[in-house]
């Protein structure tokens, strides 16, 4: 369950790649569906859960071009990316449930999940907040000559943040191995991309800073993987790049949002751009896998993800005593609890 994602090096469009990409996308979709279920069952920590359904090709495709040792940050809609980099879905789900067994011991949650072992420098609840860290990680990779790249995953909404442009400029100026991945699901909460910018051709901005930049249609995960591979090869050589994946956010912004601001016709068209269904159809059509084999695969994935819920429900919340841990490094003085302080002050005479 916890094995890192294999490095895909097959040629573009090669049939041997697609089953793996499909499997990963199916895992992401099913995981996200289970996150929704966790919320409905009242077992999630809050409702600020952002599902990446409809965007699976971005995570599966780009991450296929990454390898062990690479580092990355994600935005708040980052479950799929983390899974595609090898995360254990049970520990992810437990974190989303605010449980001690989660990746961050219930302190971070869905929007602040991280795992240094897998190179995940952190999801972020500040739009654009995780982007500059990959510049720093790029500096470190160059300094330590690791050959690693660092990738920032963010949404179209983050293109409104100045820090993206500051970061891209530095990466280009210093020829850092940085990849900027913009998952354009057409919306930042209720604001459609054309309501947030006069020029929605987002990759042009990166070109202005001297980055290699392209836009790829997220419907086709093989196309995403191919673009990812092409750009990542350059990035490893110190040519930073920017990749836009065009897709559609199938459901609401977070769990409580029903997207009343979207036209039902638009939603229907948007959801027809389904990368999972598209890959499945391609596998059948090219006779790579039969429908029954895909059904079996889907059922395996469903069982894997069902287990994450059972696991999470059985876990406990972190003990109150853990509250003061990790504000500072182990061994450093911990903050004094308010209660203790009051007792100390009043225990006179």
């Amino acid at each position: 369950m916890n094995q890192p994602q294999a490095v895909h090096r097959a040629d573009a469009g090669s049939n041997s790649d697609l089953p793996q990409l499909y499997r990963m996308m199916r895992r992401i979709r099913t995981f996200e569906e289970r996150v929704g279920e966790l919320f409905v069952r009242g077992q999630s920590a809050g409702s600020m859960l952002h599902l990446s359904i409809g965007e699976e090709s971005a995570a599966a495709g780009v991450c296929a071009a990454m390898r062990d040792g690479d580092r990355f940050t994600t935005h708040h809609r980052g479950h799929g990316i983390f899974l595609a980099r090898g995360a254990d879905p049970a520990r992810m789900m437990a974190e989303i449930g605010g449980k001690e067994a989660g990746y961050c011991h219930g302190k971070g949650g869905s929007m602040h999940i991280a795992d240094m072992g897998l190179g995940h420098l952190g999801a972020n609840a500040i739009v654009g907040g995780g982007i500059p860290a990959v510049v720093g990680a790029g500096l470190a990779a160059r300094h330590h000559k690791t050959g690693a790249i660092s990738a920032a995953f963010f949404g179209d909404g983050a293109t409104g943040q100045g820090i993206l442009y500051e970061s891209m400029n530095m990466a280009a100026l210093w020829s850092l191995p940085c990849l900027f991945v913009c998952i354009n699901n057409q919306y930042g909460m209720g604001t459609r991309i054309d309501q947030a910018t006069a020029n929605p051709r987002l990759h042009e901005r990166a070109q202005a800073f001297g980055l290699a930049a392209e836009t790829v249609d997220g419907l086709d995960v093989e196309a995403v993987a191919e673009a990812g591979r092409r750009l990542v090869d350059g990035v490893r050589d110190g040519k930073p790049a920017f990749l836009v994946i065009d897709c559609y956010r199938f459901y609401g912004h977070a769990r409580k949002d029903k997207s009343p601001y979207r036209d039902p016709g638009e939603e229907e068209t948007g959801r027809a751009k389904d990368p999972v269904a598209f890959a499945r159809a391609a596998l059948i059509e090219r006779k790579v896998l039969e429908e029954s084999a895909l059904d079996t695969l889907d059922a395996e994935v469903a069982a894997e993800m069902d287990a994450t819920i059972d696991f999470t429900v059985a876990q406990h919340e972190p003990p109150l005593s853990s509250m003061f841990r990790d504000v500072y490094a182990p061994g450093e003085p911990e903050p004094e609890p308010v209660r203790t302080r009051i007792d100390r002050i009043l225990a006179r005479g």
């Binding site: 920590a45 809050g46 605010g98 449980k99 001690e100 219930g106 302190k107 971070g108 949650g109 869905s110 929007m111 602040h112 919340e317 972190p318 109150l320 853990s322 509250m323 003061f324 504000v327 903050p335 004094e336 609890p337 308010v338």
Partner: peptide, 12 residues
């Protein structure tokens, strides 16, 4: 408030 960040866990 305690001199700590806020956790996502409701208990904390």
């Amino acid at each position: 408030g305690e001199d700590i960040p806020i956790s996502v866990s409701t208990a904390l």
